[in-house]
Computed example of a mutant assay.
Amino acid sequence: MKKVSPFALGATLYMPATRTDLLSVVMGEKLQGLRSLVVCLEDAVSEIDLDVALANLGTLLMDIDRRGGRPEDGPMMFVRPRNADMAAKLSAWPLMRHADGYVMPKLNLNNIDAWAKSVEGTDLYLMPTLETKEVFDPTAMVELRNALLETIADRVIALRIGGNDLMGCLGLRRPQSTTLYQTPMGYVIPMLAGVMGAAGFALTAPVFEQIHSQDLLKAELDLDMAHGLVGKTAIHPSQVAIIHRALQVSIDDLNSAKAILSDAAPAVFQFNGAMCEPATHLKWAENIVERARWHGLRTDKTANLSGAPLTLIEAAG
């Protein structure tokens, strides 16, 4: 399986499998600029509607097949089954090859082997969701990280942080006037960024459910970026462009990253008034270049706080 950049995900829009406009979104005809989407069979679909949702997914896959497959420049498409048993049944559908993979709800040590078996013999990627009470326990997350490394790590594009479910474990709901980082998630997200990120797993940020609070969404995205998160779940099309703008890279950061990655870079040097040390900042620099590759450069006036000319440094060598 070829490696997929987690930065390719961008804003990931969740859509219930019961929707009738899925094909136009999947084919890139509607919501242009969308990078990835999830056809959800889990929380977004009630039990009474499950048969309809599965039939609608089957129709979607047949329609994609009739069109000769999904366009290369269209959004990545993932399916979110209810559990590993459902995933195994879906994997047996020949047309499931038109999906990129599964979003795995409520991953834990008890179901990870079943999820691994559900995709055996396929080329489906996986995006496990961390959203159960065990996520609050760093020791449990170390154990889960090790299990991921031993089983499905080669299929994992990114780990998704299920903010609403995690808040629900505590009997809480996101406040309307603050970011998630001002709740107990302000402990969980940095902990996961450390435990999982240190093992090489990318993480995506939880959904922002206040659809009309764009300024608060932007503030939360700043914190998402500061914690190294590579994308964010979207629940409304109006959030997609805002998330993608937040993922853009400033010219100063890109120039700094290219200087760090240069074969001619000294062991320690100054750039834009900050110390750069390639041995320490290598991974950061690689991530900045990859982010810029997928999301481009910020062009707003605040992106160039140093006052340096807006010129792009090409790495030597």
Rank of each mutant, 00 (worst) to 15 (best):
residue 141 M to K: 02
residue 272 N to P: 00
residue 158 A to S: 14
residue 46 S to D: 13
residue 276 C to T: 09
residue 281 H to N: 13
residue 70 R to E: 05
residue 306 S to T: 15
residue 303 A to G: 09
residue 4 V to A: 03
residue 241 A to C: 12
residue 286 E to Y: 07
residue 43 D to S: 11
residue 84 A to K: 02
residue 73 D to V: 09
residue 301 K to I: 03
residue 201 F to M: 02
residue 51 D to L: 04
residue 150 E to C: 04
residue 138 P to R: 12
residue 232 K to M: 06
residue 262 S to K: 05
residue 36 S to Q: 11
residue 45 V to D: 07
residue 2 K to L: 08
residue 5 S to N: 08
residue 70 R to L: 02
residue 160 R to Y: 11
residue 233 T to K: 00
residue 291 R to H: 13
residue 286 E to G: 09
residue 58 G to S: 11
residue 104 M to D: 09
residue 167 M to H: 09
residue 141 M to S: 06
residue 44 A to I: 04
residue 169 C to K: 14
residue 207 V to L: 01
residue 254 L to S: 05
residue 289 V to M: 10
residue 266 P to K: 13
residue 147 A to Q: 11
residue 58 G to I: 02
residue 183 T to C: 04
residue 227 H to P: 04
residue 78 F to G: 04
residue 190 P to S: 11
residue 227 H to C: 12
residue 140 A to N: 04
residue 101 G to K: 01
residue 93 W to K: 00
residue 303 A to I: 01
residue 290 E to N: 10
residue 79 V to Q: 02
residue 12 T to F: 03
residue 67 R to I: 07
residue 221 L to I: 15
residue 243 I to V: 14
residue 156 V to S: 04
residue 285 A to C: 08
residue 23 L to S: 08
residue 257 A to S: 07
residue 164 N to D: 13
residue 161 I to D: 03
residue 111 N to I: 07
residue 37 L to H: 12
residue 83 N to K: 06
residue 210 Q to D: 10
residue 239 Q to A: 15
residue 131 E to A: 10
residue 311 T to V: 14
residue 107 L to D: 02
residue 242 I to N: 09
residue 175 P to G: 04
residue 295 H to F: 12
residue 174 R to I: 06
residue 310 L to M: 15
residue 5 S to I: 07
residue 202 A to T: 03
residue 54 L to G: 07
residue 246 A to Y: 13
residue 76 M to V: 10
residue 92 A to P: 08
